[in-house]
Design a protein around this nucleic acid. Structure first.
Lengths: 249, 249
DNA sequence: CGAGACTTTGACCGTAGTCAATTTATGTGG
DNA sequence: CCACATAAATTGACTACGGTCAAAGTCTCG
């Protein structure tokens, strides 16, 4: 596959990701192709830095992970940036540090450039990016529920279902299967578990026929048992919220 | 204490919280007092709803908690809204539900109203609110590290240090002590632990002389041992990020 | 004083972590 | 295309942190 051919495919991905199924227009493909020269490339393992351009990037192809390393070496992965996701490097908060690291070959476009180059539809593109930012924040909440209240099996299934749906939206799921360029160690650091436990739980899930994992590609056997086990449809929080707070001093 | 007197105090809190120590002016107290009639009040246990006004509120006094209840009754608390914090009710994301619940008597002001009523300094107020929103997002990351990679003792100390610093900024820490209107059950649901384990760990921390807990007020014995145990100074993430990713497929 | 919420304690269990070794990819250079 | 080096995945044995269940003790407040 030639480089330019790859470019076209990947642009398609980002375009679909930035368009919500319901209300919004997909981005104009030609425009993204026009941005071809503005694509930044990273190789796996490289940290994405916020130098000499805006701090918001759109992933065109590849995977990135946002993470922190604690002083003693422990690592926490906050989430993954997939094609169509926003990478927001304005992490200059007062609390500690975060870094985005490319997990694969990674291509990104400056969000500002994307908006400006969009002429008439600038506002639309800007909107799409706003929505992507909101999705990213939602993902943080989902991550908290995962590692805060789900057990190992649930965490893994929940994360895989999440990845499935996000990749599905950008056309990266083929016949139920999708690539996951993530080592079990990274799964562990994402889900707050140990490498060994991830391995054993994955095997258990395989034995139970809930998923299929071969050659870096995953297939989920989606059925009611799986989605139930994954706690994937978060229930409405407002029901019992009151009941369980009672008189808080 | 009369109602109007309370109002003055609480306005002071929000004002200080919205001003960062470094660059920004505190809000004009008189203006907040002028908003007195626009304050919304909730009693402990009530869910804050997004009806008939903007979706961003500023906490003037009291505590709120953002949480989700899973279908099977498990609960996850995402974080607390303290005086000066923003409550963002635009949680209409596609993924599940969240709710803000008052943990004490709670007073809030519509952020839009606050900005509009601020005449000349509208932009400044708007900025302060932007910063508060960013702090809130940062808090989500801290929460993920806490429940993802810290053990029970670390989680508790880390959370308490966080609360200490946030309350300190709004003048709610007196001689090292601050009120925490949070039951141990809520600590548990915030930190991803069980009620019983929270209780035992708290006692251990007390025996070790790391903190003092009496009558709903906490005093942290701040020293190097405590901050070290709490993993509270998040290290720079970029150091070894690369080392541990290597070739990710 | 009694009721309900909250905290504390004990006994026991189980999920997940640790350590260490082995097997299986994945790659790279010869 | 094979040999070696390195990263990843897998397995076993053992440990421990934290969960569960159940009961008793406190605190508040009407």
């Amino acid at each position: 596959m030639s480089a330019s051919r790859a470019a076209t495919n990947e642009a398609r991905c980002a375009s679909e990701a930035l368009s919500d199924p319901d209300e919004c227009q997909p981005l104009d493909l030609k425009r993204i192709q026009g941005l071809w020269r503005r694509v930044e490339r990273y190789t796996a393992g490289v940290t994405v830095r916020a130098e000499g351009r805006s701090k918001r990037l759109i992933v065109v192809s590849g995977w990135a992970a946002e993470m922190r390393i604690l002083p003693d070496g422990r690592r926490q992965i906050f989430g993954c940036g997939l094609p169509g996701d926003v990478i927001d490097l304005s992490n200059s908060g007062n609390l500690g540090n975060r870094a985005f690291v490319a997990l694969t070959r990674l291509e990104v476009v400056d969000a500002e450039v994307m908006i400006r180059s969009d002429g008439v539809d600038g506002a639309q593109t800007a909107n799409a990016i706003e929505r992507a930012l909101r999705r990213r924040e939602d993902a943080l909440y989902e991550q908290i529920v995962r590692i805060g209240r789900l057990n190992a099996k649930e965490r893994i299934l929940n994360l895989l279902l999440d990845l499935h749906d996000r990749l599905s939206r950008v056309g990266l799921v083929k016949e139920g299967a999708f690539r996951v360029p993530i080592t079990q160690e990274m799964f562990a650091d994402s889900l707050g578990l140990s490498l060994v436990h991830i391995n054993r739980t994955l095997q258990q899930l395989r034995r139970e026929g809930l998923l299929d994992l071969r050659g870096g590609a995953v297939t989920l056997r989606k059925n009611q048992r799986l989605t139930a086990l994954a706690c994937y449809q978060p229930a409405s929080a407002e029901w019992d919220a009151v009941r369980s707070v009672r008189s808080a001093h």
